[in-house]
Each structure stands twice: as C-alpha cells, then as structure tokens.
Write a protein that binds this DNA or RNA. Sequence first.
DNA 1: TTTGCCGGGGA
DNA 2: TCCCCGGCAAA
Length: 334
Amino acid sequence: MAATVLTTLSTSPLVLNPSSSASVVDLASKGWKESLSASYSSSTSGNWSWDASDQSVPSTPSPPLSNDAGKSFLLSSQSDDNNEDTESTHFLFEDPIPRKRKNSMKVMFKCLWKNCEKVLSTSSGIQRHIRTVHLGRNGDSDYSDGEEDFYYSEIEVNMDTLSEGLSNLTPTSPTTSGPAPVFPVLTCDASRSEPARMIHTPLSQSAPSALCHIRTDHAYQATTPVSIPSMPSEPPHSEDRISVSWQSPPVIYKGLPGPMTQIRTVSIGEKRQPVNHTTVSKAHTNNTSASKATTGTRKPRGEAKKCRKVYGMEKRDLWCTACRWKKACQRFTD
DNA sequence: TTTGCCGGGGA
DNA sequence: TCCCCGGCAAA
C-alpha cells in the first residue's frame, strides 16, 4: 500500500514541491495506517468535536475515485497543512462537484438525533457516530445501509466566526435571536427506523439559526430512491415513504417575520445573496425584512399556483381574466 | 429560462 | 372599461 502510494506520488504532477516529500514519506510510512483505522471521537459532552482522523468514506454516493489517486491527493494535501487535511479530504471524497470555497467556510456534519448536537468534520465520522451511538450497530464495521444519512445534515461553518460563535454557543441554546428553533422531531422512541424517514422534514426547519446554514441535501436524497441502498429487510413501501417526505419548502417559512433570506443569520457564508447582504452585522438579523421594499411597490410573488401554471398556455380560456390580461391572478390568490 | 404581473396603451 | 402586451424582477 505504502509503496503504491509512494509510486503514485513520485509520478503525480501535483507534488510540485520536493521539500514536502519528506513529510509525505513520513506520513506514508507511519501515518496512513492510523488515519485509516478511523478512531472516531466518542465524546458526548462537547458539541463541537473535530474528527480529524477519520478519512474513510464507506457509504457516500461519490463517484468512484481511484484509491491510489485519492491517496496521493490526500497525502500531498496533508503535507501542506495538517489542519486542512480533513477539509481537503472531504473536498476530494465527499463532493463530486468541487465546492466553492468562500472565505473560510468549512463543511461540518451535524447529528440531528434528538438531543444530540454532535458535529463532526467528516461524513463518515458522523455516520459512524449515528451507527454506533444511535442505531446501536457495530461501530467497527464500515457497512452502511444509508440510514445514517437521514440523521445528520451537512452544515457550513464560517471559520472566521466559529471561534467567536464557540464562545457563545451553549448546548441548550445555540440560537442568538429569533424564535426558538424546533429541532427535528424524529420520534425515535415510537418506532425509530421506519417512520423517521417519513417524518423527516426539510432540514431548514430545524436549522439552528445562529451559526449554521443547513443545506437541504437530504431533500434530494429523499426524493431520489436510487440513493438509498437496497436492504433485504427493507419494506416494499420505501419509495412511497420517501416521496411523502418531500413537502413544499415554502411552507416552512410561513409565520416567520420576513422572507427566508432574512432569517438566515450572518455568520454563515453568504451563498445565495449578492453584494447587498454580505456586510450585514451580527446584530442586524431578523428585522431587515423591509429591505426588499426598496425595490419598489411590486408585491412579492405568491406561492400559489396561478392559472397559467394550472391550466397551461393551451387552456388559456380557462384562466381568470386577470391572468389573461397579465394582471395579478384573482383565482389563485395568496 | 420561466413565470407573475405592473404599467402603459389601443380600441 | 375591456383587452393586450412590453418588460421587469423573482423564482
């Protein structure tokens, strides 16, 4: 294995700096074995535990990556900065599409299990955590049926503000403002594995609003039955169950004071918003919902289906007159 | 790119 | 007043 790695490294164009080869050799000779035997942190007290040693990714849908090539990438990146290795590993192994790195964003994986806020830096780590701690499975086995995917979510953490956030973060109240977050009610006690998927709501509903912007990757997984490895014991309703879990996302934000962009707080990367909101301060969180009014008196587009959407262009005679005249729909009002 | 609809204008 | 449509902005 080590010889293969070294051979790959010697031919890899990525190793441009000869001075780094020493550490590479060092890592290859003694470090890789340790890094492969994933020792996940089983601390239950800390909400922010950093699992830097875990680099095996047993059950991700990533495209197959050559082991040798992956190792060479991994080792060469390790030689640069040890703190970066988990991210670069994640960068290489987790995402088929290279993630845009903005400032110092870091992708973490947060356990969504009730009363468990464990955050790990690798998906395999969080999967193993869920497998062993919550699902009661053998932690040594890398076998995964994919169920763990439903119990953790990917979050992006701005490392610039993480240290600040850590000082304020408490296990019981991770929010700084706004309504108390509703953590995912997975009803694990009733019947854990089966209905949990069905009940699993879009993750943004459970987003702790202080530091995390939870991506809705699981919505994709939920609507894509292919992504769930088939299991012999899996009941035949799995697809029905999965499709039910996809609710219309805008429902989540009803009753909240402003557009959804306003409930996102500041310390997380501004992925969706253009220039206007990037410099907003921490105290400037929820009550800026009127900022959109600066664009004019145009009322925001409603969520309801309109005549055009419902009937289509070919049945335009069924539209309400307002829709026919390109006015605000009167039939499907909001 | 599609969709909702404002604002304006013709009949 | 009815009807149509250019064009803007949100999705």
